[in-house]
């Protein structure tokens, strides 16, 4: 595979160095153990938000470190969860005395490592709450699987909880809001191509010219079914139909519509999907009050798209609109 890599084993370290150099005013990168934190953390009296997960999903999570979103992010190796000592060190570094909220995507590795970290934090007398994100409707059989995966809702939770924390909400309140956002969000994605982990050097699966992988996860793991390629409007409807039915979303609901690129899909195509999605949502009587279009939670160089729909509550609108200044999301805030 062709990639801009010096040494496969150094991709995460070198990318983090690059981020630190690109955003010196926003974040600091610690290396032993490895985490990113807001340059102005800890913020006294503010609930600290800490997330993390495997690398390869950029800008998630490091790109969301900054005012109005995460206080710290713990990157693991590519597609490998971070370790408990990273999470512990990050939480200790950014805890401003109001406790720490861990935002965890529901994958076995992430869950186990964050669980061990939460036990260590408890032993260190740091109040900790965990929000587990599991919005992926592609996983239908939760009883006989590791449960639904955490996908696009993660970005929305990090933004909304980040604003709630900035507004001075307590740890219990911020955690409750995070769980409510998760419960009101549903997502589904598809891949047009596999992705290639630079450390593996080979694509995670093979797809024919006219095939797509439907119900994909974000780690290059194959989805639930392989189907023929179809027009963008058709595929968008195939993604939205299970999402709409699952919550279920009802006529009159106010929603946030998030169209996420998986890494190698151009914005030109994402807007085509967004256009189709708005038409379908409106046919269902949904009112789209907020939207996000772009590649925010990716799967390396995978081409594809995921759609997340969130049924909004009144107070979340204000949290969504609240100022944010991070490498990947930035609005309403004066540059520092």
């Amino acid at each position: 595979m062709k990639a801009l890599v010096n040494a496969p084993e150094n991709v995460v370290a070198e990318a983090l160095e690059g981020m630190a150099l690109a955003y010196p005013e926003l974040l600091h990168v610690e290396t032993e153990p490895r985490f990113l934190r807001r340059s102005d953390a800890p913020r006294r009296g503010k609930v600290a938000l800490v997330s993390g997960g495997g690398s390869g999903h950029e800008p998630l999570h490091g790109g969301f470190v900054g005012s109005g979103m995460l206080d710290a992010a713990c990157p693991g190796e590519v597609f490998t969860s971070p370790t408990p000592d990273q999470i512990l060190a990050a939480a200790q570094a950014v805890n401003g005395g109001a406790g720490v909220l861990l935002i965890v995507k529901n994958y076995t590795g992430d869950v186990l490592n964050f669980q061990l970290a939460a036990e260590l934090l408890a032993a260190a007398d740091i109040p900790t709450e965990t929000v587990l994100v599991d919005d992926d409707v592609a996983v239908t059989d939760s009883l006989y699987t590791a449960g639904r995966r955490g996908v696009g809702a993660t970005v929305l939770i990090e933004k909304i909880c980040g604003a709630a924390a900035e507004a001075g909400k307590s740890l219990a309140d911020v955690a409750r809001i995070g769980r409510e956002v998760n419960a009101a969000a549903r997502s589904m994605g598809l891949a047009l191509t596999p992705c290639t982990n630079p450390q593996a050097g080979q694509p995670s699966f093979q797809l024919g010219e006219q095939e797509i992988e439907f119900g994909i996860g974000i780690h290059g793991e194959p989805g639930r079914s392989r189907i023929p390629l179809a027009k963008a409007d058709t595929l968008t409807e195939m993604l939205l139909t299970p999402i709409l039915a699952d919550l279920p979303f009802r006529s009159g609901d106010t929603v946030l519509l998030f169209v996420d690129g998986l890494g190698a899909t151009p914005l030109l195509e994402l807007y085509i999907v967004y256009r189709a999605a708005t038409r379908i949502a409106e046919q269902h009587g949904l009112r789209i009050s907020r939207r996000l279009v772009g590649s925010y939670m990716t799967s390396l160089d995978m081409a594809g798209v995921a759609i997340t729909l969130l049924r909004m509550q009144e107070d979340w609108l204000g949290y969504w609109d609240a100022p944010v200044r991070t490498p990947a999301l930035s609005w309403g805030a004066t540059p520092c």
Binding site: P33, G54, G76, E77, T80, S81, P82, T83, P84, D85, T108, G109, L112, N113, Q115, L116
Partner: peptide, 12 residues
């Protein structure tokens, strides 16, 4: 192993 492996296999 817990502090270097990551994933599920590290904690396990």
């Amino acid at each position: 192993l817990i502090s270097t492996v990551g994933g599920a296999s590290g904690p396990l």
